[in-house]
């Protein structure tokens, strides 16, 4: 019985962490879907969301909702500026060059945040208190429910946007074949910009809702970005639901690994599984193999 209770706690903790990875993974997938590049500055968007909310709350004395709105809007502006200044001017750059640029941008953003807001870790107050909620013998916090809720909303929103609106469909078209999309009159440049806008907004939103739990500092983006990237890879980079499942699986495996095997090998277990997936199913767990039509 005790073991059962322990395992429930491991799974619930894992799902809660996994939902965070899923949300960050989704924001990776959005940019990848319309540009084919992996934005390694994604973790920095997450960090900016948290740091700017705390700044708006403590220094500008805004109410929480307004602070969150300001943080998400400001991060989105950073995303737009980044796309305009660093991605757009390179007309015919290879994806590799673009990826390296995103790494450079991530270092720059981290450095600027460190200089402006300092190196201290900061915490955001929980949105609805810290009283633990008991679920079949395991406990979680109200903030975890916020994370689950926002993740579900974002997935549903993405699904609707990408499959049922013209802009969403146009963005998907760009990811399949840029030139063909261009030929049918889709402005590829604008779609790329759009993808950065959405991705920065989702990333920063993730940063805001996790800040009360995980706390935030200028350098939290690196590890979170990496874990989100893993989630996206497990889901096959493209599919929204796949990414979410990838994140949840990653979180649960980490937690079970730490609890049942050894906490020292927690990350090793997670990354081993990532490697295994890349070897066996390079297209991701939940994606059908793509066929190239000639």
């Amino acid at each position: 019985m005790e073991l059962f209770q322990q395992i429930t706690q491991f799974v619930i903790s894992g799902l809660a962490t996994g939902a965070i990875y899923a949300l960050i993974g989704l924001s990776f997938a959005i940019i990848f879907n319309s540009t084919g590049i992996i934005n390694f500055a994604q973790g920095e968007f997450v960090m900016l969301g948290g740091v700017m909310t705390i700044f708006s709350l403590n220094v500008l004395h805004l109410p929480l909702i307004a602070a969150i709105a300001v943080a998400v809007a400001a991060t989105t502006v950073v995303g737009v500026v980044f796309e305009r200044l660093a991605i757009r001017p390179l007309k015919n750059a290879t994806p590799l060059a673009l990826i390296i640029i995103t790494i450079g941008a991530s270092i720059l953003i981290r450095g600027v945040v460190m200089l402006v807001w300092g190196k201290d870790t900061q915490a955001l107050p929980a949105f609805s208190g810290n009283d633990p909620i008991s679920v079949v013998g395991a406990t979680l916090l109200p903030q975890h429910l916020w994370i689950f809720g926002v993740t579900v909303l974002v997935i549903v929103g993405c699904r609707l946007f990408f499959h049922h609106t013209i802009s969403g469909k146009a963005m998907r078209a760009c990811s399949f074949n840029r030139r063909a999309a261009n030929l049918v009159g889709i402005s590829v440049g604008r779609m790329v910009l759009f993808s950065f806008v959405i991705s920065a907004a989702v990333g920063s939103l993730a940063g805001v809702i996790i800040a009360p739990l995980t706390m935030t500092a200028y350098d939290v983006g690196v590890m979170l970005g990496l874990k989100g990237f893993c989630a996206a890879i497990m889901g096959g980079m493209g599919s929204g639901l796949g990414t979410v499942l990838g994140g949840l699986i990653l979180g649960t495996l980490e937690s079970l690994g730490a609890g049942l095997i050894s906490s020292g090998y927690k990350d090793a277990i997670a990354f081993f599984i990532l490697l295994l997936i890349l070897f066996i199913r390079p297209q991701g767990l939940f994606k059908k193999g793509e066929t190239e039509r000639v």
Binding site: Q9, F10, G14, L213, V220, E254, S255, S263
Partner: peptide
């Protein structure tokens, strides 16, 4: 736990 870990409930449950 690793320096950047964000949740230590598994270790504490153990």
């Amino acid at each position: 736990y690793a320096p950047k870990d964000t949740d230590m409930t598994p270790q504490l449950t153990k």
